[in-house]
């Protein structure tokens, strides 16, 4: 892998199962040290994409390269360079923490001289010091999940694929897990993590929205917000609301305005009314303005908007 090539890229990646297209001409690019969130409803094609990138599934069409290796033609090389963890926390329940780590270290042929240090690191990362000899099936979900991550990174892969790693885990453990993800990314690991928890999308450097097998949008969370609304969202505390709404509806640069509870929400686009000019604009029309504050639409709203405005969203998802 040369230093400037992306860790992962996909070009027109497609997977068909019989007549069903699970992934439809997907393009993707992930740089080193980047955490990319893969967001979309169940059945959107997240897992299928990840499985293709891991070399578990052969692409029907298109190409993808992971760590500089072609996933279709060099799956063995790809597997040497990736760590993979899925929602199922695939560890051996009847083996101890230590035995599971030893097993995966052996499968990945971790050099003997590094073995004890790597295993110690994984154990401390999972917070399992002192419980090395506990059977894995006796561990709670959060620990199992961190141990699975520990097993997946024993061989120091430059790229990590995490397929809904946090599903079914309590919020506190989920937060700890994301801390680990960011630590790994800070060390230069490229991470593609799929989730259907919208709030987790905020933790990602970039988000890839996927629906019906197609990439709907990709960008940083704030980019996606702006793109979905066509401007920035502001919350205006003013009376009377009806007059204000009417006034904003005709103002230049206002993309959208709506009553939201006892306040007004307005999206301001480029080249028109700015947030600073708003109070004066409204005051001139005899509307009393309490405050104007920037508001953040939830990513869920963003997702719904982006999906509904994308022409080729199919019912298949």
């Amino acid at each position: 892998m040369s230093s400037d090539s992306p860790a992962v890229w996909a070009d027109g990646l497609t997977k068909r199962f019989a007549s069903f297209t699970a992934v439809d001409h997907l393009n993707l690019r992930i740089e080193k040290g980047e955490v990319v969130g893969f967001i979309g409803p169940n059945g959107a094609g997240k897992s299928t994409t990840i499985r293709m990138l891991c070399g578990l599934l052969r692409p029907s069409e298109g190409r993808a390269s992971v760590a500089g290796f072609d996933v279709g033609r060099q799956p063995e090389e790809v597997r040497e360079h990736i760590g993979y963890m899925s929602q199922k926390f695939s560890l051996y329940g009847d083996l101890t923490v230590h035995e599971n780590l030893r097993f995966f270290a052996g499968i990945y042929r971790v050099p003997h001289r590094d073995l004890s240090e790597r295993m110690r690191f994984a154990i401390s990362m999972a917070g399992l010091e002192g419980r090395e000899d506990a059977l894995v099936r006796t561990l709670a979900g959060g620990w199992k999940q961190r141990l699975a991550l520990g097993c997946a990174i024993l061989h120091r892969p430059p790229i990590l694929f995490l397929d809904e790693p946090t599903s079914g885990v309590e919020p506190e453990a989920r937060r700890r897990f994301w801390d680990l993800i960011h630590e790994l990314a800070a060390g230069g690991v490229a991470i593609l993590v799929s989730t259907h928890y919208m709030e987790e999308a905020e933790y990602c450097n970039r988000i890839a929205l996927i629906n019906g097998g197609r990439l709907v949008a990709m960008g940083t969370p704030s980019e996606l917000r702006q793109r979905s609304l066509g401007g920035d969202l502001f919350e205006i505390d003013c009376v009377p609301l009806g007059a204000a709404l009417k006034a904003l509806g005709t103002a230049q640069g206002v993309v959208e305005a709506a009553i939201f509870g006892d306040k007004l929400h307005a999206v301001l686009g480029e080249g028109g009314l700015s947030a600073e000019e708003l109070p004066r604009f409204l005051a001139e029309r005899e509307i009393r303005v309490g405050s104007v504050r920037p508001a953040k639409p939830s990513l869920e709203d963003v997702f719904v908007r982006l999906v509904s405005t994308t022409p080729e969203t199919r019912a298949a998802s």
Binding site: E80, S90, I107
Partner: peptide, 14 residues
């Protein structure tokens, strides 16, 4: 069924 097979298959094991 448990999923450990998948975990092993993404490793470079032959």
């Amino acid at each position: 069924e448990v999923g450990t097979l998948e975990q092993i298959l993404v490793s470079p094991i032959r």
